[in-house]
Design a protein around this nucleic acid. Structure first.
Lengths: 219, 219
DNA sequence: GGCAAACACGAGCGACCGCTCGCGTTTCTC
DNA sequence: GAGAAACGCGAGCGGTCGCTCGTGTTTGCC
């Protein structure tokens, strides 16, 4: 027992007294980071550029984050938290009783909405470049979402072998990411059209698997 | 007219006498680059690492390529050339008369085969990180493939408005890329299974659009 | 065999990166 | 109001990167 007053588990000494000013700076820095990550990707974003965008010096940035990766991790955590509180659990077992069209609306629309307002989320989750440790956090989100998906698919079509169910969830996740990129790459009417295409593609893929009676999607 | 003997268009003075040894080195360097690009991505691959992998010094590398980007461009050109000569025009109008199942087999199988043997192709075409000028070359391939796709879709379903046809081609291209990534990320039986899933997803998306009678894909 | 051109080397240049450190300023606490 | 802690700054450290350059070796051609 090395600690005397502060009850840290000795393994990690993280938290630190923050003033209101500090919390504001952290938010400024995370906003700046989101902007720069979107523009240049994680690897292409320099910490100096993030500090500049936030209007502070590089030294100030490192008052609040131990390293570049921690910025992405904290940003990711705040985004996932905001996503959960904005749309609840996102997909619950009760969705399984909906017809495929409605279920896709119920799942895809909020997800698209969220990603349009927080485009950095896709940048972080795509992460072709994010190095090592970030994988823990990134995978945590990835695995959690995919587990939800698998669960939902299991409710809808219990006859599916578990191996096939995993593949289906992986596939849906990947197709969704691809469609989402196209949605974010367009604006206005084009964006709306791509949202419909995204739903149509998911419908077309899932309908034969879950044995839906509707032959196609009617927009 | 500034040139006297060599008939260069004055705008570009590129080609240079190469010995057999030089051609061999170029191939070594491109092979090494493909390997390193696959491992680390374009941005993450250092020219020194490419030279080391090829067993030559950094200076030697720059005897044959003016800069890092030129390596990716040349690699891309050789890959597209190899793809064309390996599988012909890849999809021709006559495919339009095939049933959707068979057409997907005819288009997807060679494409998957090629990408499994040349995984660097996806790395280059994905190019979330490739900077500026590379875009010309990358887009050239992207646009060419998508134009072919649009053409084929136009043959199959002439009633589709051109705007919608473009969206469909974009969508198919994107879904295919996403599926291909999953295929390359697995091996053996899993890979074969994902190839089927890829075909199933394309079938599900395209069947309602082109008005196919087959309700689903039978593997 | 001689000579120019092509090939090969590898130390290292300049630029940029993530990050630090010494020191000055603001804010909280008593 | 005094002391401590949090905040803020920016020059610059150590390192990597793309790329160069001076020099030496091999090759093709007469």
């Amino acid at each position: 027992m090395t600690e005397t007053k502060a009850d840290q588990p000795a393994g990690e000494a993280k938290p630190r007294r923050r003033q209101a000013r500090g919390e504001r700076r952290i938010q400024q820095l995370l906003d700046a980071a989101a902007s720069v990550f979107c523009r240049a990707g994680y690897a292409g974003a320099s910490t100096n550029a993030i500090a500049r965008e936030a209007g502070v010096s590089p030294g100030t940035l490192y008052q609040f984050f131990p390293n570049k990766e921690a910025i992405a991790v904290e940003l990711g955590e705040r985004l996932t938290h905001r996503m959960r509180e904005a749309h609840g659990v996102l997909f619950t077992p009760e969705y399984a009783s909906l017809p495929l069209d409605r279920m896709l609306d119920a799942v895809v629309d909020p997800m698209v909405e969220f990603n349009c307002q927080n485009p950095v989320f896709l940048t972080l989750i795509h992460s072709g470049d994010i190095p090592g440790l970030m994988t823990e956090d990134h995978d945590a989100l990835h695995v959690a979402l995919q587990a939800r998906l698998e669960e939902l698919i299991g409710f809808i079509q219990p006859a599916l072998p578990p191996e096939r169910r995993t593949r289906t969830a992986t596939m849906v996740f990947s197709l969704f990411k691809a469609g989402l990129e196209l949605v974010l790459a367009h604006e206005g009417g084009e964006r709306a059209a791509y949202i419909e295409e995204l739903k149509a593609s998911l419908h077309g893929y899932l309908a034969p698997i879950i044995g839906a009676e509707t032959p196609s999607r009617t927009p």
